[in-house]
Amino acid sequence: MKGLILKKDNLVPLLRKIRKGGKLVAPVQNRHGDTLFEVIDDLDRQQLDLEHQAQSSLKPFFFPQNDPLATYNCAEDYSFEPVVSAEPTVYFGLRSCDLTAVLYMDVIFSQNGADTLYFARRKEAILISLGCNQPFAHCFCNNTGSGPFLEYGFDLQFTDLGDSFYVEADRARGEELLERWSYFFTPADEDDRKKQYQAVLEARSNFRRTVHVDPAVKRLAADPDLQPVWRELSDRCQDCGGCAYICPTCTCFTIVDQPLAETHGIRLRQWDSCTFSGFTRMAGGHNPVNHAEQAIRRRFLHKLKIDVEKHGRPSCVGCGRCVDICFGGVDMIRFIAMVNDLKLPAEEK
């Protein structure tokens, strides 16, 4: 479909209309100066922030850190009642990396049957992404094929043209939204399209980092046994799980029972991380993974080797959040550099 133009002055009025029809989630700067995706209750009070990268991704909205699967009763009998909650929600202002991550989660949560809870929320979601004219400090989505702008996958994609947004739809739900609120938009002309194209081109040259993802992927496919790398990074990993929690594509979880009383409780799905020593520990204490040397092997191989084999592309989306979260420097950019710097056995001779 042809592009449309939304004057920036019309953005907040449009979001107000959208919010009246359902839930709205957008990046908001809080009083501490942190930018996080939040449910918008009051557009006058909450400061919409489209200047900074949101520190969190959309992951928690579809796959919450603590997600009740069921309530259980074990008084006289033992039984489970499923819990499902989802409401129509428009997500505005997510970046191309975050959108790509949601599309990846769609694949993960449809393996061996569609995950009821995840897709209940996903089916109610409209995703409006904002391309990145100016990538942020640790961004490398151009090297992971997940930005700075996308060609498909979004319901709507916004491009900042200065005093207006260029708006394009890829999915029916996006088009429906445009039709419903059509009086906010005007058709884009040839000049607007040129400006949009120019913004996309310029964005590609605005990256401050070049991360050689493809060579690392090839290297790992050929030889995933990089003991010196695993050892050094495992040694520096402090077992905090921050990288997995902040990562928009880390979806490993645990399932636990939370008793509320002797007679009943909640079964929760909770975020977990393969870097935790307890992740593979079995009843009785035996652990088939040598944590000291292999703690982070799983994490990086999963993203750059196993997902390439399984799904045809790495599951790192280049958002750079793991760089900021880890004080031990056990992040994707460091890892990729270490892999590419390793001398091949043939070169050592």
Binding site: Q111, T251, F253, T254, D272, C274
Partner: peptide
């Protein structure tokens, strides 16, 4: 292996 989901999603039994 330690397992949580049994259906290839939770990641524990890698």
């Amino acid at each position: 292996r330690h397992m949580k989901c049994g259906i290839g999603v939770c990641g524990h039994c890698h």
